[in-house]
Design a protein around this nucleic acid. Structure first.
Lengths: 169, 169
DNA sequence: TAATTTGTGTGATAGTGTAACGATCGTTAC
DNA sequence: GTAACGATCGTTACACTATCACACAAATTA
């Protein structure tokens, strides 16, 4: 099976997102099975909205989008669904924006990834970098601190937006 | 002037916080001067509440505490004050908790610090680790992403709480 | 079948953050 | 001086994020 290279962390603007999303949904199903969790209709719908793009999306955006499709659900229901999706490792939380994004690559769910969020287009990607997390643990322990969860988020410009900015007047 | 070692990132539980807080306030004054910003009464009050402990504090907690002291201000006012304090580099935001904490050490305000937040006592500390941020930039660029701001937050157990947990029944 | 757990619905509420507008005050330019 | 400007802060209202408490039905287990 092909593993994405770091250069592929961001999707090409013209990529086939329908196929991309379907593949992501299938991986989600597998992840739920593997953990003995149930991917109910509601959870699948919520995940579908999150996986509909490579952007991070707020809980209330999910509510709005589902409502436009005829499914009106309460905030608590979205959050409950999101909780399970997070537990399954198929979505992550972008702490710096209080929003959620789908895991579009099939990486091990150990959550040792640096999160990259483009400040211009909003697309979110992840790159594996276990050495960084090892270094973080070392730095933490040098302060006699025992690390449990680590979060690395980077805001900046993705390749596509950098080109756009560069060619702007 | 004495520079804190990594081992000192977390304050001793019995440290003299009155002196600690005064020193922090003085550094804040200097930081405001250096940047041509004005440390007004309101801003100083807000900073005083944030610097009153080594914990991260929410904006509405600041409002409540100031109210108990007779100063009732609107949310927008706290946020405006916080914005300036952030710009001056004398407080930082703990993204993972939507809260703010004072910079209790006199480090250069380049913001290249790993943030450690104790899950038990809530105390927040920072450790300098430029190598980590260099590695993050390298990882980002390997995905053709140009990094602008980086945040590293670690949740875990500080030395003091680890001992407490270890000695518990 | 009965007991229990799990998933979802409803209504209320707590917590976080901003928009829009206006008043005050100090500074600078004329 | 005073007019214009910019910075600070107040007031009101509102938008967004997240959870609590309770009820009920469906699915699992005993």
């Amino acid at each position: 099976m092909k593993t994405a290279s770091p250069r592929d962390a961001f999707p090409a603007p013209e990529h086939d997102h329908v196929a991309c999303r379907d593949a992501t949904l299938n991986r989600a199903r597998e992840a739920f099975d593997a953990r003995g969790l149930k991917l109910t209709d509601l959870r699948a719908q919520v995940f579908g909205e999150i996986a509909a793009s490579h952007h991070a999306i707020g809980a209330y955006d999910i509510i709005d989008r589902l409502a436009r499709q005829g499914t009106r659900i309460a905030p608590i229901s979205v959050y409950r669904a999101i909780d399970v999706l997070l537990a399954a490792g198929v979505v992550h939380r972008l702490e710096s924006r209080n929003a959620f994004f789908a895991c579009h690559a099939s990486h091990s769910a150990d959550r040792q990834h640096v999160i990259l969020a483009c400040a211009t287009c909003g697309i979110v990607a992840e790159v594996a970098a276990s050495a960084i997390f090892d270094a973080i643990d070392t730095a933490a322990r040098s302060a006699r601190f025992e690390p449990q969860t680590r979060m690395v988020e980077v805001s900046g410009l993705c390749a596509h937006c950098r080109q756009t900015v560069a060619s702007a007047p």
